[in-house]
Amino acid sequence: MDQQIVNAIFIGSIYALFAVGYTLVFGILDILNLAHSAVFMLGAAVTYSMVVNHGQSFVVACLVGLAASAFIGVVIEYICLRPLRRRQAPAIAALISTIGLALVIVAAVEQGNVGSFFSWLWVDGANSVAFPAGTVPNPTWHVGDLTLEATKVLIIPISIALMLVLGYVMRFTQVGRGLRAVAENPRAARLMGLDVDRMILLTLVISSALGGLAGILFGLALGDISPYIGRDNVEVRGLAVIVLGGMGSIPGAVIGGYLLGLIEIVALVTLGSNASGGVAFAALFLMLVLRPQGLFGTRLRERI
């Protein structure tokens, strides 16, 4: 059980990191960016490919993976969101355009085989791969009856530090004030002289880089990198996390991530592996029915 709780914290950190990017975009644009799970996958896939196929060191590979994720943030804004904003399209249209982009990204990685058009990106097709042993030093400690691997343990301080930095930026800096102003009222922000389009671009770049980082850490710690890790592991769970914490709330997403990790592990231990999958969604459903603003949500414009 103790080991399970430790595992819950590892996986909770990844959920939290993923969901922070998700909730940042929702908080500022009121749009669910459904390409976020594809960015998560792409970060892991590019980093793996740089290490294994292009022979780069892990640090360089990580930077390339993060750059690729951030670049997809730019693509999301310029291709999926900005044209729709210009046309004053209903919010639901952005769901479809981001789904379309997610489809393209996943299909591109999926079709990356030796000799194919995308072989520079990925060569393992739909298979699941892991970083070769020794890519990063991974000492393992035994504390009592707990097994602690360095890659898993490191995730926790990295996630917490990043989320603290993001929280600081949002609360105390000029850029953060600008972002919050856009979230509050884009038209008023524009009248105050803010470049709203640039703020939104910045939001998507930050959000996608965080999503990509979550993917890299996931691939490193769990040894499972495939075109489907985003869809299978974080797409819907990410929604659950931001609802548990309160849509648009960054501290909420962090707490929600750890809470979901804990709920899943407790369900796994008490109900067995079959029933545990449904528990997270039952929790999500109950949370929305009983307290739709989430644990930390403050504003709730969607409700009468």
């Binding site: 355009s97 982009l101 591109a108």
Partner: peptide
């Protein structure tokens, strides 16, 4: 096919 289909979805909705 999925790459083309995704791009088609984006183009139609834009």
């Amino acid at each position: 096919i999925n790459i083309i289909a995704g791009a088609f979805l984006i183009a139609v909705i834009i």
